[in-house]
Design a protein around this nucleic acid. Sequence first.
DNA 1: TTTGATGCAAATGTTTTGCATGCAA
DNA 2: TTGCATGCAAAACATTTGCATCAAA
Lengths: 129, 129
Amino acid sequence: MKYSKQRESILKYLRSTKCHPTAETVYQNILSENPNISLGTVYRNLTLLTELGEITKITDFDGPDRFDGNNAPHYHFVCKDCGAVLDLEMDSLSHIDLLAAHNFKGTIEGHTAHFYGKCPHCASQKLEL
Amino acid sequence: MKYSKQRESILKYLRSTKCHPTAETVYQNILSENPNISLGTVYRNLTLLTELGEITKITDFDGPDRFDGNNAPHYHFVCKDCGAVLDLEMDSLSHIDLLAAHNFKGTIEGHTAHFYGKCPHCASQKLEL
DNA sequence: TTTGATGCAAATGTTTTGCATGCAA
DNA sequence: TTGCATGCAAAACATTTGCATCAAA
């Protein structure tokens, strides 16, 4: 694969943040480093990096897809109040694959899961009302 | 809420199928019963029925949103080969909310989870190769 | 009659793609 | 120099919305 400055910028930005940005947000954040980059190039490289396994595409939530530069397996939380997407520190739930396989005639290869509720910030605001 | 024949058709169709159709598929399937219905009306009613809790919107997968007329809580499986979405017969995984809450300072109200692999049909085809 | 629901079409938002040009190998 | 990657713009796709009309209450 041929090197490109644009792809390097995109990956560097995703590795540096925990905010699970959309393609548009990635674009806005690397624009200062790449004044002529186009949104199409951002999309092309996000798709490519996802196929290479360098990043993960998060399609679980409403709205535009988000991207995650954290390669380690982990689960996500979304706040019902403010919409923030946070990483959760918890063990793998691989045992649920066995529960799913129990009455299923196909093969279970894995799962995705995410959690929702109130994030630390919104939960504490609620208490103050 | 005012009665409408279109809404009744949509709900009747969703109650009758286990195939988790998209808005477009719902539209195609009720067209014979409602020759003049528009796709916009289908979208409006799918949104309304989702808000009423009569049906569920599935946003977990790539591609357009799907809708599920089965009100009972259950989990979904998607086949990596053919893309089919199937219902899984398994107990609630409510215990994973406790696992998620363990190191989390906000509040966990629930989760969504889905499983992937090969469906019964594609798994058996694979064996025949 | 009143008000919410519809059909239609245009608008919106997200993502993909065609094509000429540019840059890495 | 060769071919993949880019920038740009148009297209494709999914969904929402404005508005005049229609039908349920």
